[in-house]
């Protein structure tokens, strides 16, 4: 069992989400930075979709009430177990009574904590992800509070003394949105051609910043005003995470993991799936830039993403095998 000591309500239990229920109005949800949670789980020998904690508000502290192992990935922040500081993207043992502390990120916005065996919570509609809007899944369908106690599934996880780490090539030196804009690859969406040539040019030619109105449902951006050639009245239609809508204000909204499953605003573009982690790690105030990409390049990025996970599993299995060898 673990006990939450310091948290904020934006911190929730997440797994890889609840796909398959969009037609019931249920969002995919799940970790905003799916790769980070999957890798954290894989470092511990868990299924990549085991339930962990998404920390969007730091500092975060928890106490282990049993001897177990944890992995922390995602944002780059100071992490310690007991009095031992841990490198980023690290899996390590934690003993009963010890405290895991995540300080405010230096780079990025969301941290992921995976636990050996995963959090033991009931699956609701095929997932343990918290759906805050619907008030179900995760821990009591809500964000975590101080004093919450969460059980872990039984697990056998052997880590080398000192733990193990992971490093993802594409994250090395990635733009943080402060010194330089975070680049997001986009495909044009249904109403792209309904925008003025000036709006189309401004969309990919100028920088955007993330306003305070940013959460798991979506981010409101500020920048140049994007205008339509003429007003559009659309009927409600299904949307996916990454959809960039432009409401009458002309300031875009990027719909994310917990977005409503249907929308009615004109859509100028969609951020490709392989780049959604960049948004998950973009804090309020970060600068963004959209760059057009071909559908082939977008699919290739997704393929590389999945291959990376397979490679990681292979490497982890190899290492675990060596651990067991006499």
């Amino acid at each position: 069992m673990i006990e939450i000591l310091t948290t904020g309500l934006p911190n929730t239990v997440q797994d890889l989400g609840r796909p398959g229920h969009l037609a019931l109005g249920v969002s995919h949800g799940g970790a905003m930075d799916r790769q980070a949670l999957a890798i954290a789980n894989l470092m511990l020998g868990n299924d990549p979709s085991a339930a962990g904690i998404e920390v969007a508000l730091h500092p975060f502290r928890l106490r282990a009430h049993i001897d177990t192992a944890v992995a922390v990935t995602g944002a780059e922040c100071a992490v310690s177990v007991g009095d031992r500081p841990c490198p980023p993207w690290w899996a390590m043992t934690i003993r009963a009574g010890e405290t895991l502390v995540l300080e405010a990120p230096r780079v990025g916005a969301r941290s992921y904590i995976a636990f050996a065996g995963g959090l033991d919570l009931p699956s609701v509609m095929g997932s343990r992800a918290t759906d805050v809007k619907g008030g179900f899944g995760g821990f009591a369908g809500r964000g975590l509070s101080r004093g919450d106690r969460l059980a872990l599934n039984p697990a056998q996880c052997r880590l080398p003394a000192g733990g193990i780490g992971a490093a993802l090539e594409e994250r090395r030196g990635a733009a943080d949105g402060a010194a330089s804009a975070i680049e997001l690859r986009v495909l044009p969406a249904a109403e792209f051609d309904a925008f003025t040539p000036e709006a189309q040019a401004a969309f990919t030619g100028s920088e955007w910043s993330i306003t305070n109105d940013a959460n798991r449902m979506g981010y409101r951006l500020s920048g140049e005003t994007l205008s339509l050639l003429s007003p559009l009245e659309l009927l409600s239609h299904g949307i996916v995470p990454g959809t960039v809508q432009v409401p009458p204000s002309g300031q875009p909204i990027i719909q994310l993991a917990d977005a409503n499953t249907c929308g009615g605003y004109p859509k100028i573009a969609t951020v490709i799936e392989a780049d959604l982690w960049r948004l998950a790690q973009a804090p309020v105030g970060a600068r963004l830039r959209f760059s057009p990409v071909s559908i082939e390049a977008s699919t290739a990025a997704l393929r590389a993403n999945r291959q990376q996970r397979r490679d990681f599993i292979a490497a982890r299995n190899l290492m675990a095998g060596e651990q067991r060898a006499p």
């Binding site: 796909p19 037609a23 009927l235 299904g238 949307i239 977008s298 699919t299």
Partner: peptide, 17 residues
Amino acid sequence: CEAVPGMNNLLIVFDPL
């Protein structure tokens, strides 16, 4: 993967691989 009826429209979610 998913077929999502909207109002006189339909969103089809698929695996691009």
